[in-house]
Design a protein around this nucleic acid. Structure first.
Lengths: 351, 351
DNA sequence: TTGTACGCGTTATCAC
DNA sequence: GTGATAACGCGTACAA
């Protein structure tokens, strides 16, 4: 009936089935290879009838495994992380793991606090996308020291230290593609709104842009680079700044920032595409509903999420460190990037 | 050093401090009122030096409390829920609770599965926003039966059964305000894109619209009501349908749907505001970056989240059922609602 | 203040 | 080989 019926223990089942608790344990965990089928069946029936469910706490206390993975993300309201968590959670559930989710709100103190807290809960593994702040001193050192001491398998995703295990998109390659595309459309003055440069996701994306410039024998001017924060606000701010520096296109390192660029451009009386081309990064769902759909680099969030789970669980379950696969982002054409006039003419005349 | 140093038990501390494990337990949990300060200090120092941390599993096993709250949301990529979780998590953390988060992906089977799973983990409480499907038979009955049997304190938020404890925005009142506003702008043919009508959030919002009509002696025609799903896709679909029925405005019951309306209107060659007024519900961050900022009803997500935590924890910790406070949404003026011409004239002539 | 039993599965040991 | 018995993990509650 109701009221959380008294818990059924393994001994109740044993009594009912007329065997010892030990046998019940073995049968129910599938390790009773040696027991006669008759016994196993009796145990299973008894367990079924009593609606027995093992107390996970008790089990964990002895096995020292909780089947819980702790996740720390910097900002749940960023669609990229929401989407990532959305894929990670079922991927882990499928393999018998639950998720304790923590949102650091981009504060390194929270990263540390939550990691300690998760460790206190004896999670089996950690999936980390720390705050940008956590990649600066002294947090960075503290974080790595802490992880070393805890002895809990961990994996960074999206944001990472080069020398620690991680899974993320191929940042440099992806932004190289993006920048090349902009240049193919005739843009040679491309403003860049980066994320925090403490993140090598940002640094690597920036490197990709530089490479694209280099390929054409050009150089990215430093006044065309604006360091933002992967959010809408810095997108707007960056846009305002870059517009004054004569860029014909803006490459925002996240779609959130690109949305900010839209707002900033409007405020400045510039039309997206016609007056200012915009490239994003992520392909969040909202990009397609904008009046001028955003041209952006789609991150294969689901693959990244699933790969992260795979790699982390390999470490958790067998201690092996898989070399994670690399993921390329894919160019999604919206209408926010226009070909520059003279480029169109060049194309025409070369036909 | 590194490598997850061997765990320090309460007995280690006791040995070090030269007292009994029991005393250590008492001191560290602050219940050692009677012990001499000297002893307490010794214990604390010993604990500090050994870096003792109680094993939460062992503690939970005996106290039967885990200090974990399970949350089930239907769609993490919906900004409303992402935002809600973002506020809930720290509110609970502040009071010593962690969160296991589950995302049902709008599938009732997952709701049930996750609730069982959370119960298996002996969570102290459940915060539920079930899938729309879960409010239909046979899921609905199963869900309530399950909750009754588990005996775990629970609280519904945003989506709820009238006769169960819940916290949510004042749906009817809020949509009444929204509809009134539209009518004040001269709209008397208002298309409505609802969420699933199995949710009384949707039904109540619809009731609010009907009341607004009634206040003017009018009646909401049934062909102006389109039942959607709180997502972008049904927003577009609903828009397409409603446009053919001569509405001058569309009231979408979520901003996501409103975004879909923007896309649908564009596809149909209608301009937002000029050709079609749009009202949303939620005030998601993206609404302000749209080329035509969305006029929408802002849900006080943070208050709702914090109130939900407060009410649930009251049930968890002292078994009392607080009567939750009511939350009104607030009209946020964008530019997506235009005054109808004849209305403007009326205003002019009445001056 | 402290000894001791307890919570509940699991694992190692031991007898049939 | 088949199954029972006992100890264990670790913090807490209650009696002493």
């Amino acid at each position: 009936m109701s009221g959380g019926g008294k818990k059924v223990t393994i001994r109740d089942v044993a009594r009912r089935a007329g065997v010892s608790p030990t046998s019940v344990s073995l049968v129910l965990s599938g390790k009773a290879a040696s027991l006669p089928e008759a016994t196993r069946e009796r145990v299973r029936r008894a367990a079924q009838e009593l609606d027995y469910r093992a107390d996970l706490l008790a089990r964990s206390l002895v096995t020292r495994r909780t089947n819980i993975i702790g996740i720390v993300v910097p900002d749940l309201t960023n669609p990229f992380f929401a989407e990532a968590v959305r894929h990670i959670q079922p991927a882990l559930a499928e393999r018998g793991y639950d998720v304790i989710l923590c949102n650091s709100e981009e504060r390194a103190e929270n990263d540390l606090r939550y990691i300690r807290l998760l460790a206190g809960r004896s999670v089996d593994g950690l999936l980390l996308a720390p705050s940008a702040e956590a990649f600066t001193e002294p947090y960075s050192r503290t974080l790595r020291k802490l992880l070393g001491e805890l002895g809990i398998p961990y994996l960074f995703f999206d944001r990472y230290f080069e020398d620690e295990p991680w899974v993320a998109v191929d940042n440099e390659g992806s932004s190289l593609l993006a920048a090349r595309y902009l240049m193919e459309q005739g843009h040679e003055k491309i403003g860049v709104i980066t994320g925090p440069l403490s993140l090598n996701s940002s640094r690597n994306r920036l490197a990709g842009v530089r490479r694209a410039y280099a390929e054409r024998g050009l150089c990215l001017r430093s006044e065309w680079v604006y360091e933002g924060k992967y959010d809408i606000a810095t997108g707007s701010a960056g846009c305002a700044e870059l517009l004054g520096r004569g860029v014909s296109a803006v490459f925002a390192f996240s779609d959130m920032q690109a949305y900010g660029v839209y707002a900033g451009a409007r405020r400045a009386g510039r039309r997206i595409s016609a007056d200012l081309s915009v490239m994003g990064f992520d392909d969040s769902v909202f990009s397609s509903v904008l009046e001028v759909p955003l041209t952006t680099m789609r991150q294969p969030v689901r693959q990244i999420a699933e790969e992260a789970c795979r790699v982390l669980l390999a470490r958790v379950e067998s201690g092996e460190t898989l070399r994670p696969q690399n993921f390329a982002a894919q160019l999604v054409l919206g209408k926010s990037v226009a070909a520059l006039p003279h480029e169109r003419e060049r194309e025409k005349s070369s036909q």
